[in-house]
């Protein structure tokens, strides 16, 4: 399994665009179709927005996954924010969309193939993976 890592720091709203751009480029190179590229970009947007809105500062990093013949993209969003108290609540449908905040974390989970969420007082780490359709 060969891996390449790159990352984007999220501080300003503008950085969300940078993260999207980096993710899209990687997904294009990995051979994702246009819908999947759009999905990955939307997932990155959500993760980066969460950082920008709730933690103020954090980082999105990307990892290319080669589990041949599968090829995938792993996105890790990390912040040192206040953490999420009720994980089940934020993962529930209708939790964030009803407040008009967008797709929320359940949306990210839907857009991607694998999803993991860890959060405590130290901060939050979201890991999401998308595999390219062969």
């Amino acid at each position: 399994m060969k891996e390449t890592v790159s990352s984007v720091v999220i501080k300003k709203e503008w950085d969300i665009v940078g993260a999207r751009q980096a993710g899209r480029q990687l997904s294009q190179e990995l051979g994702f179709g246009s819908v999947d590229q759009a999905r990955i970009a939307t997932a990155i947007s959500e993760l980066a927005r969460n950082i920008y809105l709730y933690a103020k500062e954090g980082e999105i990093s990307f990892e290319e996954l080669y589990d041949l013949p599968k090829v995938g993209l792993k996105i890790v969003a990390r912040d040192k924010g206040p953490g999420i108290n009720d994980l089940s609540a934020v993962m529930q449908d209708g939790y964030s969309t009803s407040g008009g905040l967008g797709a929320g974390l359940p949306g990210v989970k839907r857009l991607m193939d694998e999803f993991d969420l860890v959060s405590d007082e130290e901060g939050t780490k979201v890991t999401a993976i998308k595999w390219a359709r062969p």
């Binding site: 246009s34 819908v35 759009a38 939307t42 209708g94 359940p106 949306g107 839907r110 857009l111």
Partner: peptide
Amino acid sequence: SFKFLIETMISYGLAYQEHQVLREK
């Protein structure tokens, strides 16, 4: 323009899926 439209539709797709889940509930 189609790439642009697909991008615009992604959130609708999510809302649609969420709607399905809420309907089952």
